[in-house]
Amino acid sequence: MKLETILQRIPCTVVVKGKGFEELDLRSIVASDLMSDVLTTVDDRFLIVTSLNSEQVIRTADIVGAPVVLLVNGKQPQNGMVRLAEEFGITLLSTPLSMYKVCYLLGCLLESK
């Protein structure tokens, strides 16, 4: 699933444009607020959907090779989170939608690809 499609179809704003922003292609989605849970994922190139807006999300994304983080509930990232996303080249998005709703919409996009 192309990041471009997500940006077109899901109401969200781009907070940080990470590495390879224009041609990012995502294989799957992991939605969680517990980073230990994300760390158990064996996949890479997935999108992390979370309501956690701390640096630890970016550190986790970097470790597992998730190039995009989508913050839900209109959460604004903490300053350190933006700084770290820029440093690690991770794309950071924010949506006013809830995790529940956005998962459904992303699921529809994933199925229709």
Partner: peptide
């Protein structure tokens, strides 16, 4: 509430 302490850390590290 910070997203830690769900009892997955040590099992994760061991895995």
């Amino acid at each position: 509430s910070l997203g830690f302490g769900a009892g997955m850390g040590l099992p994760n590290a061991k895995r």
